[in-house]
Amino acid sequence: MLKDDPLVLPSFLRDTTNSDSALKKFLNGLSGVDKVGVEERVAKLGTRSIKTTAKAEGIDLAIRMIDLTTLEGMDTKGKVKSLCAKARRPDPLDSTVPSVAAVCVYSDLVAVAKENLQGTNINVAAVATGFPAGRVSLAAKLQDTADAVSQGADEIDMVIDRGAFHEGRFLDIYDQIQSVKRACQAAHLKVILETGELKTYDNVKKASWIAMLAGADFIKTSTGKVQPAATLPVTLVMLQAIRDFEIATHRRIGVKPAGGIKTTKDAMKYLVLIKETLGENWMNPNMFRFGASSLLNDLLMQRRKMKNGAYSGPDYVTVD
């Protein structure tokens, strides 16, 4: 990844964000996405057979890529504490299981997570900016972000203003992302597009570009609060936008599908998708994350099954 300022675009792209009309023109000039074609491509990749050594490697890779998440109104310190323990040592019976990438919580619980992950490489990610709907003032979004950062959040997962998107106010979204990015300071910014509310693949592509132009470190599919959350075709469209952005700017943007990814089989399909679209440079937790809660246990059960030859069942993994 280039070390240049993500808030400054290369000169040939700078004009695109000078005005609302320039940005709109640029986004409308992107090539379209054919729905049938993108879904067909994903279905074909879905037939990849991941067995033995590939599966074992894929499972550990997927565990290392997880943002272990709890985002509920009823979240407590106790809940976050036990989630952190799980993040550090996903399988108490097997120390060869790697830790996850990050723990993802609401901003008011960042300090609790931070404290319980001390001495590890596990990051704390906070959802901010009026998550999940984002229907608060910019000032409130920035305050939310600043709070999380001041408590030690390493990563901020912000939501875009989908209302503004459907009103065609693309530059407003761009400006908001830039403001939040500034408020993040050193923290990494993941921009949640909430693709379930954007509805079309063309919109997903446009929103991906707005986020990348504005300085996102990661683009993320969903909050998990809207159905459908992450899907393979939506993720493919985002991966291809990331590839196009890299070709144009030499900047590598990470990607995080979140919500609804529950099984090892699902996770393997996402790994296949990145491998065959973006390639090896994205096959690591710095560039790819799964936003998930129940996925981890299925990965652990499959991992044990591969090791012991027998399926142990859900009572043999912890439910934190």
């Binding site: 990849r48 057979s49 991941i50 067995k51 033995t52 050594t53 590939a54 599966k55 490697e57 894929g58 890779l61 790994l271 491998k275 090896e280 096959m283 690591n284």
Partner: peptide, 9 residues
């Protein structure tokens, strides 16, 4: 090579 597919005949 990361995540090399094992033979699946």
């Amino acid at each position: 090579m990361v995540f090399e597919y094992a033979p699946a005949p």
